[in-house]
Design a protein around this nucleic acid. Structure first.
Lengths: 217, 217
DNA sequence: TACGTTATTGACTACACGGTCAAAAACCTT
DNA sequence: AAGGTTTTTGACCGTGTAGTCAATAACGTA
């Protein structure tokens, strides 16, 4: 019998997400959010509880979306695991060099968090772990396929890829262009083909027939 | 004959830098700055012109300091170029996994800039180019020394290292520990030893006798 | 069709912020 | 010692902020 809402929470969160991605948590004003979502202040307040809470909702949606996207890109079986990682990184290069002002909410939360104990910080930490998990899974498959060296440390490589993509995101925002970012992505991939630094002879298993080499500028 | 100042501009900028590194530009209040620097508001205003201008001063000092530090780490000739890059990256891993809340002002400016035309953005862009230049120089030496493949693209690799360090910075802030970050750094270095993705036979020049292999967890 | 429940609306509040003003203080020169 | 110049000091101001309140509207049910 109560009066029903005129909006879908998911729509609101998604609009808010946009605002936060462009302005960040602190710099986004309630007015920005009101304008973007079409709701009144009080409705926002009733439904979510305030700017910070709304940000958390947006953040967790963003994390889900991000891991979903990566795990889809890495999970298709139309190509070998290694090829999929390669494709994914190239996609990221293009995405990050687009000129819109978006920054992933995870990165924003990371930078705006005020301390190790800040809920923002813990939320992003689990987000990063999720992401690394997805990479790790794909890398494990690659290892099973003998596409990467037997002794590769899948766990640290997974974190490595999270770091690289985060760095590419920042560089893209700094105005680094698509060509350079693509070259960086291809450079980053060479890790998967390298010998360990203390080895002088190559492992016996490495050739990747299906892949093209980097066409660096 | 005018009354002299009671402070050194460099001291003030350096204190302000600290505040900005912890809080960011937007979140740092003038009161924070007043407290940290010991000056009165008006003195700050006379000497610098306002929060934003002070941030720019701090930013350019930060850029100088950062490039100076990197180029020192990469410029010593107590080790081969490649060894120096390795040492530098490991140093960064330790630094970034320290638990203080600092974030480089360049990264902050990058994230807080509001548009491609924002002076913040252009300042950071040149900062990143400077940094990449330092890496490029060292990589060039490494190439001349035949420590990395002849056909390595020094320019994109330089940008790659900027991306990796930026990523490591973010991960460190997310609470990723020293061990993992070190492993990531070592992973990142493998790029310099890798074959191109379309090669199946190794280049003939690679062994690095003085270096230990990664002790990944 | 009337009632109870919840959503919506828009005016309101308290506050913290960046920035300013004018008076007082401190120094160097002459 | 006196004057001129600049810094310092501390009170002040307008603005924009997140958040609140009380009145009104809209719906399902009975």
């Amino acid at each position: 019998m109560p009066r029903p809402r005129k909006f879908l929470e998911s729509d609101v969160v998604s609009s808010a997400s946009e605002v936060f991605a462009v302005h960040g948590l602190a710099a986004a004003t309630l007015d920005d959010l009101v304008r973007a979502t079409g709701l009144g202040k009080q409705s926002l307040y009733n439904a979510f509880g305030g700017k910070r809470e709304l940000f958390f909702r947006a953040l967790s949606e963003d994390r889900e979306e991000a891991t979903r996207a990566v795990s889809e890109a890495l999970g298709h079986d139309d190509a070998s695991p290694l090829e999929r990682i390669r494709g994914h990184l190239l996609t990221m290069a293009i995405e990050f060099s687009s000129s819109d002002r978006r920054v992933s909410l995870t990165t924003r939360a990371l930078v705006e968090s005020t301390g190790e104990e800040d809920p923002l910080s813990t939320a992003t930490k689990t987000g990063i772990e999720q992401l690394a998990g997805v990479y790790a899974q794909c890398l494990e498959h690659a290892r099973e396929n003998r596409e990467i060296p037997e002794d590769a440390n899948v766990q640290s490589l997974a974190v490595y890829f999270v770091a690289v993509t985060r760095g590419m995101e920042l560089l893209g925002r700094a105005g680094v262009g698509r060509g350079v970012l693509t070259a960086v992505a291809l450079d980053a991939l060479r890790v998967l083909h390298g010998r360990r630094m203390d080895e002088t002879t190559p492992p016996g298993d490495a050739g990747q027939p299906g892949l093209r080499g980097p066409k660096q500028t």
